Deep mutational scan, measured.
Amino acid sequence: WVPTKREEKYGVAFYNYDARGADELSLQIGDTVHILETYEGWYRGYTLRKKSKKGIFPASYIHLKE
């Protein structure tokens, strides 16, 4: 896992994603996520609506905010 280059990196989910394991994070369309790390097509972070739950999710489900 590699920390993100920018201190504040955010994105928005444009697909729903159902977590398949305890380390994964479920997403709903429109969720804003804070991205902490990246690795081979995956991000690690949390949604702003539930900051206490961190997990991994596919990068392809996220539109990055500039």
Rank of each mutant, 00 (worst) to 15 (best):
Y17T: 00
E66M: 12
S60D: 08
K5Q: 09
R49E: 13
A13Y: 02
R20Y: 05
E24G: 03
W42M: 01
K65C: 15
Y39D: 04
R49K: 14
S60E: 12
K51V: 12
G45S: 05
L25E: 00
Y17C: 06
Y46D: 01
I35F: 04
T32F: 14
T32W: 15
F57C: 06
V12M: 06
H63K: 14
Y46T: 03
A19D: 00
W1Y: 07
H63T: 11
L64D: 02
A22G: 10
G21I: 04
R44S: 05
K51E: 10
T38V: 13
K5G: 15
E7H: 14
Y17K: 00
G55A: 02
E40G: 13
A59L: 03
H63V: 14
D31T: 04
E7P: 11
A19F: 02
G30L: 01
Q28R: 15
S52Q: 10
E8S: 11
R49W: 11
K9V: 10
A22P: 15
S60F: 07
I29T: 06
R44D: 00
L36D: 04
D23Y: 07
K54C: 14
D31P: 05
F14D: 06
I35T: 01
D23A: 07
K54A: 07
P3D: 09
I29D: 02
E40I: 06
G21V: 05
S60V: 11
G55W: 02
L27T: 00
S26P: 03
W1E: 07
K65R: 12
W1G: 08
I35S: 00
E37Y: 09
E8Y: 12
N16F: 06
K9S: 13
A22S: 12
L27A: 00
D18H: 13
W42R: 00
A19N: 02
Y43H: 04
E7Q: 12
W1C: 11
K5C: 13
G30V: 04
Y43C: 06
E66D: 12
P58L: 08
G21Q: 09
K50S: 14
W1T: 08
T47H: 09
D23G: 13
S26D: 11
L25A: 01
T4S: 14
P3M: 03
R20E: 08
G30A: 03
H34I: 15
L48C: 15
G41E: 07
I56R: 08
Y10L: 07
R6A: 14
L64Q: 03
G11D: 02
I29L: 05
E8C: 14
R6C: 14
V33L: 05
F57T: 01
Q28M: 12
E66S: 13
V33F: 02
A19H: 01
Y61F: 10
P58T: 02
F57G: 02
H34K: 12
S52Y: 12
K65L: 15
G11H: 03
Q28T: 11
K54M: 11
T32C: 15
W1S: 07
N16E: 08
E40L: 11
I62E: 01
I29C: 09
Y17L: 00
G21M: 08
S52P: 06
K9D: 03
L36G: 01
A59N: 04
P3G: 07
K53V: 12
D18S: 12
Y17Q: 01
A19L: 03
H63F: 10
E8N: 12
T4V: 14
L36Q: 06
V33C: 04
K54L: 14
L48M: 12
Y43R: 00
K5L: 11
L64P: 04
A59W: 05
A19G: 06
G45E: 06
T47L: 15
Y17M: 00
E40M: 12
A22Q: 12
G21N: 15
E7T: 13
I35R: 01
I62L: 02
G11M: 05
Y10I: 11
I56C: 10
V33Q: 00
V2S: 10
K53I: 11
G30Y: 03
I35L: 14
Y15T: 14
K65I: 15
A22R: 09
K51P: 15
I56S: 04
Y39A: 10
R44Q: 05
G41P: 00
E7S: 13
S60K: 14
R20G: 06
Y17G: 03
A22F: 10
Y61P: 03
G55L: 02
G55P: 01
E37V: 05
W1N: 07
D18R: 10
L27D: 00
G21H: 12
I29W: 05
A13R: 02
G11S: 02
E37Q: 07
Y15K: 15
S26W: 05
S52W: 15
G30I: 04
P58A: 06
I62S: 01
Y43E: 01
S26A: 04
Y17P: 01
A13F: 02
E8W: 10
K65Q: 13
Y10G: 02
Y43A: 05
F14W: 14
R49I: 05
S60W: 06
Y46E: 03
L36I: 11
E8Q: 11
K9T: 11
W42S: 00
R20D: 05
L36C: 14
E24I: 05
V33W: 03
G45Q: 05
G30S: 02
E8I: 12
I56P: 04
F57L: 02
E24R: 02
L48T: 10
Y61K: 06
Y61E: 01
P58R: 03
Y39I: 09
K50A: 15
H63Y: 11
I56A: 09
V12K: 05
H63L: 13
T4H: 10
H34Q: 05
L36W: 03
E37R: 03
G30F: 04
A59Y: 03
H63D: 08
R20F: 06
W42A: 01
Y43Q: 00
K54T: 14
K51Q: 11
P3I: 05
E24P: 01
K51D: 10
K54S: 09
D18W: 09
I35C: 05
A19Q: 02
R20C: 09
K9L: 14
H63P: 01
L36N: 06
W1I: 07
K51Y: 09
A19T: 02
N16W: 07
E8R: 09
D23R: 05
A59S: 13
Y10V: 08
N16P: 12
S52F: 13
V2A: 11
R20Q: 12
P58G: 03
E66A: 13
E40H: 07
V2N: 10
W1M: 07
D31V: 06
V12Y: 09
K65S: 12
F14H: 13
V2C: 11
A19M: 02
T47Y: 03
F14G: 08
K9W: 12
Y39N: 13
Y43I: 05
L25R: 00
F14Q: 13
W42G: 02
K54P: 08
E40A: 12
F57M: 04
L36E: 07
T4G: 08
T38H: 10
T32V: 15
Y46F: 06
K9Y: 08
F14K: 15
F14R: 14
H34G: 05
D23M: 07
A13K: 05
Y46H: 10
Y39Q: 10
V2W: 11
